[in-house]
Write a protein that binds this DNA or RNA. Sequence first.
DNA 1: AAAATTAGTTGACAAAGTCAACTAATTGAT
DNA 2: ATCAATTAGTTGACTTTGTCAACTAATTTT
Lengths: 312, 312
Amino acid sequence: MSKPSASVFEKRVNEVRQFNRFYTKQIGALSENYLDSDFSLAETRVLYELAHKDDLTAKQLCADLDMDAGYLSRILRAFEERGLIKRVASKADGRQHLIVMTAKGRKEFTPLERGAFDGVAQLLEPLANEKQEEVMEAMKVIRNALGDELPKTNSFVLRPSKPGDMGWVLYRHAAIYGQEYGWDERFESLVADVVADYLRNHDPSKENCWIAEKDGKNVGSIFLVRESDEIAKLRLLIVEPETRGMGIGARLVEECIRFAKQSGYKKIRLWTNSCLHSARKIYERCGFYLVEESPHNMFGEGLVGQTWELIL
Amino acid sequence: MSKPSASVFEKRVNEVRQFNRFYTKQIGALSENYLDSDFSLAETRVLYELAHKDDLTAKQLCADLDMDAGYLSRILRAFEERGLIKRVASKADGRQHLIVMTAKGRKEFTPLERGAFDGVAQLLEPLANEKQEEVMEAMKVIRNALGDELPKTNSFVLRPSKPGDMGWVLYRHAAIYGQEYGWDERFESLVADVVADYLRNHDPSKENCWIAEKDGKNVGSIFLVRESDEIAKLRLLIVEPETRGMGIGARLVEECIRFAKQSGYKKIRLWTNSCLHSARKIYERCGFYLVEESPHNMFGEGLVGQTWELIL
DNA sequence: AAAATTAGTTGACAAAGTCAACTAATTGAT
DNA sequence: ATCAATTAGTTGACTTTGTCAACTAATTTT
């Protein structure tokens, strides 16, 4: 895992702190809408929890909100007196009470919730759709990085390519293989040729490419092109390092096999390098077998090219 | 400006609110380090301001921190009694006092500042360099979108290309011209050919390309390639829409002209389309003149290709 | 069955924050 | 130049918010 230099790191910490100040001010401004309600900040926090979770006990609330038990107790009593909540003795444990919001409680909480919603909406509303998307993505990145457990989807889709995708394919091949294996610009050139060839003229009934997309972002690609009437060639399989292990690569290869069969090919051939272990596993699992190996220095030292084939 | 649908918008607002809750918890945890100091939260805020800005008046502090004047007054008196600050009567306005931190004040504030720094550092430290960069970028996006005035640098650099850049060039040409002018995959193909040609074999003494980089991100490109011994061809000039108007395009063209002269060319020729107005302006300003126009449908309807030349 | 633990409550209190009245200097209007 | 209005800052009286430790009653552990 690469680390930044001390001075860069320090700069980053300070930038994060600046962001914190900025954001707390933002949020602070937003969440002050409770001020013109009949509730204190602590009370709104309690109400929020109660409105969004059922069958809470005081203990639970205490833990969730990290709040003093005595303080909470008083808040709850006040709520009960105002008819906002009801406490029913737990059947399982006589010490506990399950706290539920009454209809009146919900009604009084609504404007608060609405105010909070509107506040955020006002902030977001002036932004163009694209900008909003960027912000969503940025928040996801931060939550992810700072350890929030985001619900993992692990779901991706394959789709045909659209303008810009070829650039992405070239960019990611050069960047990923450059970084992981040190392959040089000769490899980039090779990929550029393949991509340019494909764009220049490909017969859609015999040649195709797929992009794997996850959460709206490209995360993988594969190409199937014609070598001869009988033989199809599989090329440019790549999966973003971060999304490996989700079966994206295998799914891409399977799609190619399906298409190759449908297009009347008898065999799929592919050329890869011995150092690409995870790709190798996918090929093996899909039924490809190694037919030839030979060393080369086409875009790096000590490489071993491999030809794999699959009889359809 | 495109807008999301109501349901998507609602979802986004809720996501932002979720982020807010997550982040306030994060920050809350971080900024509790004042708890085991001799200062209250309000006091640390005041100290922070005092430590980072000079010659503050109580009024200023009041406004900056959005704090009750009376409350602040008491805090300041306490600080003065503890010898952390000094108040000197303003010469310009006898009602005002300039507040300055004493050496003792700085000394007592240091561990707090250090604690805050360390807290953030601990959060950031486990992340790999790349992840950190992502987080920095994400925070910038959010601050930008949510209206924080980021110090605008407007500074960019030109640099030679490195692996991955060609993909970026292809990607951005296809995406930007696709979006702005509706040019189709035939344009993408054309660009791919140019890029592949360039990568396949270019004589570094006669051909070159430059990438404009701003804040660590690619924002523009230009290529100069050989057409004949006497004539150089300028190609693939592009500037990200968001960074236009900063002189990046002109700077790229100038760099090409400089290189072309140095390489012994007599003339630079370029081919563009009439609809690209801002590019046209750059060419004009650099001394290019229009030598030929002819309509075509190479990658869209009703296009007019233009050839421009510059005698060196 | 006694001891220890747990959920929740309560009183006493301290800290944080607000409000309005006040002083003293400055500014603006005539 | 003078007087009313404004501004910077302070102070006393007060409310709200939050903490702590002692307490009760139910439950679990030994």
